[in-house]
Amino acid sequence: MTTEDAVTVEAVESLRDTADPRLRELLGALIRHLHAYARETRLTRSEWEAAVAFLTETGRTCTDTRQEFVMLSDVLGLSTLMETVHGHGGPGTTESTVLGPFHMTESPVRELGADIDLVGTGEPCVISGAVRSTDGTPLPGAVLDVWQADPHGHYDVQQPGHQPPGNGRGLFTADGEGRFRFRTCVPSAYPIPTDGPVGALLKATGRHPYRPAHIHFIVSAEGHAPVTTHIFVAGGEHLDSDAVFAVRESLVKDFAATDDPALAEELGMPNPFRHARFDVVLERA
């Protein structure tokens, strides 16, 4: 055994009295992988110091309305990997994807059909659909937590004093047939914040910071596993190069141009408007 190997063995052995076996397993694996990384890359002292400084600055950048560590996990693909490993239900269920760093506040409860675009600066659209179980049974009372950026790519928590609190957010309860509907604006592609260490990392690696246009959902219903997901605007930019690797083909939806004065009046929309259909299928828990 080399001296390098002996350090790893000793560090793992130091966990032998850890009462929680899962904690012991997780920390042991972390030590082994970190040590293997350092040996494989022949990590220098200055590189190690730079990594410590990077993580320190990542922590300092976090606030009540900004989660830089979540963004770091996102741009390294770890968040999407977690969803790939754990987030998918059975065949036919709605695919899951990343939570993202801006689910930082409670969405206000809104009535079905309400408008979550409180500033009215974007292209009007309606999102409608139904929540059902894998056997097709509607799920009345399903809860949909929805949030999105404004047409300029900013969430309400990023612009306090400019956007009203709760702009782009809503907590909806599906009707007796599992149906839901709300009004909003067509989302746009936007860059994740680049003024912190994650932005510096993207620049250093020659990567762009953009996410394709999307709306976030968390959908839950009694007796079923919840799903954290998005819908993406078909034909939009960056669908093939999402900075956080979250696009799923099944979640790309057509925001169809609709010119129907009678339907617009029924939905409380100006005419013409855009309309996207998103049906959610949940797996029984």
Rank of each mutant, 00 (worst) to 15 (best):
Thr2Met: 02
Thr3Asn: 13
Glu4Ser: 14
Glu4Gly: 04
Ala11Cys: 04
Glu13Asp: 15
Thr18Ala: 07
Ala19Trp: 01
Arg22Leu: 05
Leu23Gly: 04
Arg32Thr: 08
Arg32Val: 03
Arg32Lys: 12
Leu34Cys: 07
Tyr37His: 13
Ala50His: 14
Ala50Arg: 15
Ala53Asn: 07
Ala53Ser: 15
Ala53Thr: 15
Thr61Ala: 15
Thr61Val: 14
Cys62Ala: 13
Thr63Tyr: 00
Glu68Gln: 11
Val75Thr: 14
Val75Pro: 02
Leu78Gln: 06
Val85Phe: 03
Gly92Lys: 12
Ser96Thr: 10
Ser96Asn: 12
Glu106Lys: 15
Val109Phe: 03
Val109Lys: 14
Ala114Gln: 09
Val119Ser: 04
Pro124Cys: 13
Val126Asp: 07
Ser128Ile: 05
Ala130Gly: 02
Ala130Trp: 01
Arg132Ala: 08
Thr134Arg: 15
Leu144Glu: 05
Gln148Ile: 11
Pro151Leu: 06
His152Tyr: 08
Gly153Met: 09
His154Asn: 15
Val157Cys: 08
Gly161Leu: 00
Gln163Trp: 02
Gly170Val: 05
Gly170Glu: 01
Phe172Ile: 04
Glu177Arg: 09
Gly178Ile: 04
Phe180His: 01
Pro187Met: 08
Ala189Arg: 09
Ala189Pro: 06
Ile192Met: 14
Pro197Cys: 01
Val198Asp: 00
Val198Ala: 06
Gly199Leu: 04
Ala204Ile: 04
Thr205Gly: 11
Thr205Asp: 11
Gly206Arg: 03
Arg211Cys: 10
Ala213Val: 09
His214Asp: 05
Ile215Asn: 10
Val219Thr: 01
Ala221Arg: 12
Glu222Cys: 01
Glu222Leu: 05
His224Cys: 13
Pro226Arg: 13
Thr229Met: 04
Thr229Gln: 07
Ile231Arg: 06
Phe232Ala: 02
His238Pro: 05
Asp242Thr: 03
Ala243Leu: 01
Val244Glu: 02
Glu249Leu: 10
Leu251Phe: 01
Leu251Lys: 14
Lys253Tyr: 05
Ala256Cys: 04
Ala256Tyr: 00
Ala256Gly: 06
Ala257Met: 09
Thr258Lys: 08
Asp259Met: 10
Pro261Glu: 12
Glu266Leu: 05
Gly268Asn: 06
Met269Asp: 08
Met269Pro: 12
Asn271Tyr: 04
Pro272Phe: 02
Phe273Lys: 05
Arg277Pro: 11
Asp279Tyr: 00
